[in-house]
Structures are given as C-alpha cells and as structure tokens.
Amino acid sequence: MIEFCGLQLQHPIVNGSGTFDAIAARRAFGDALLADFPFSAFVSKTITLQPRAGNPPPRLWEAQAGMINSIGLPNRGLEGYLEYDLPQLAQLPVPLITNVMGSSEDEVARLVEAIDERDEVAAIELNVSCPNVRTGLDIGADPRSLAALVRAVRPLARKPLIVKLTPNTADVAAVAAAAEGEGADAVSLINTLRATALAPSAKRPWLGGGTGGLSGAAIRNVALSQVAAVAGRISLPIIGMGGIASGTHAVDLISVGAALVAVGTENFRDPCAGSRIASELKSLQIRH
C-alpha cells in the first residue's frame, strides 16, 4: 500500500482524467472490470456545472506516435453526475477522484462545494485548462489567476484538492508554486499540449473544435521535463503523466519526482494498461 494525500492506494498507477470511462468500460467488459480494475484510484472525466454535449466531430487525429483530441469535455453536468454517474462510480473497488472545471471562481466553488459533500468521493481534482470568462486566458496558464482560484475554493473543500496543471504556459513551475502557496494538496501534470491538425486535402483545421490537445508517446519527454521542473520548485506530491506506456516510463517519471503516475492515451491502446504498467513497475522496483 502507498499513501497519497491520505488515500491508501494499492499501487502508484492511476488514470488521467478523461482517458478511461469506467461506466462505458463496464458495459463492454462486464463485472470483470471490477474484479481486476486497472488503476489504484479512478479519476473521473471533467465535470462542469452545466451539461455539455462536447465538440462537433471530427474529434480525433492520429499524429506521429500520438494523437490529437478535441473532445470538448462532454458530461452530464453536476446534477447529472451526482444523480447518474456517481452511484455507478461508487461501485468501483478503488478511491474516486472527481475532476471539475469552471470558467469562473464562482462556478468552480459551486462544483467543489457540491462534490466535497459526497462521501463517495475521496479527492477533488481541478481542471484549470479553461479560459477565464473575464480575461479569456487559461486560468492555469497564469500564476496569479490560478492563485486566486485556489484561494477561493480551498476553504470549501475538506477533501484533498489536486490541481491539474496545463503544460501550455511559459513557466509551469511558477503555476505549481502558486497552487502550493494557496494550500493545494497535490498537483498533476501534464495535460495535453495544444496542437492543430490540418485536413489532408483542404489544408484547413481537421478537428471540429479547431485546435486540440496532443497526447501519447510523442509528449513523454515533455512530461519528464515539466514534472522535474515542478518537483524542483514545490514540495507537494505530484501525479505525473504524459505518454506513459510501460513500467520503465513510470520509473522515469517517479525518478524525477512523481509520487503517482497516471496513464492516459495508452488506455486506448490497451484497456488494461494500468494493471500491466503497475505490475511492470513492481518488478522493476524489486529488481533495483
């Protein structure tokens, strides 16, 4: 067992938000999913105050050793999450981390307050890769707006508060320091890197949402660099992610300062990537 922000976890491998839908996976694989759940904690997809349909298709582009997605955070909204998703996610055999996003401090506060009340949820992750309604800039791209957000919502949560950092900023360590300064319990990184794909013939953006986020093997070394930079600046525990597909990759991220490692795109290629990587990691750690 390992301890992370007061959560007792079987191993250090979790999922990245939005890269594994446990409810849909149970429809495909049945209750075998619960018996052999791939992750030691489950991170929900991003929940917003109002329901979102998501972006118009196409939503995916296969890139070189990776993919670009422009999904647009489809979700049932807070009410739908609490009523429909949460009872199903509560049946998972691992602690549940709920990821939330809002475009203002008030929106995020309402989400955090409502989620914090629920015993089924072990921790809250803030997705700050969202434009601020007032400035139009991503909240997580600017240390000052991130500090203001965490300051506003920190007192509302008794549960551990994790800030999911965006890599699309000039100085990710400065943003992480702002989260630490305002009382966040942990940070997670990296989110996807902003990317554009052009339709092969027309040379206009392929994705229905215009731009998207790059993930997969292609970003692994960016993740190493950013996790190392953040670990050098703050003392909070870090959930590291970005292109992790093997135990060796997980060892690398842990060696630069990650406490937990999240698997994202590799879940798409291998539905049990989480268990596989956890077991590869264990045998590597025993060997050393």
């Binding site: 409810i23 939503r59 993919m67 798409f268």
Partner: peptide, 27 residues
C-alpha cells in the same frame, strides 16, 4: 467512425442524433 479505444473511453467517435446531442459509435 475514427476511434481511439473502442470501449467508450476516448469520446472520439460520436455521431449527432436527431434528438440533439451525440452518441458514441463504439458503445
């Protein structure tokens, strides 16, 4: 539809419905 995973994880393979919203082709 182009899809990354096939089991509902990626939300990439949606088609629009007459009633509004999208469904995932995979699940």
């Amino acid at each position: 539809a182009g899809m990354a995973c096939g089991f509902g994880a990626c939300y990439g393979c949606v088609v629009p419905l007459r009633e509004g919203g999208y469904v995932r082709v995979c699940v």
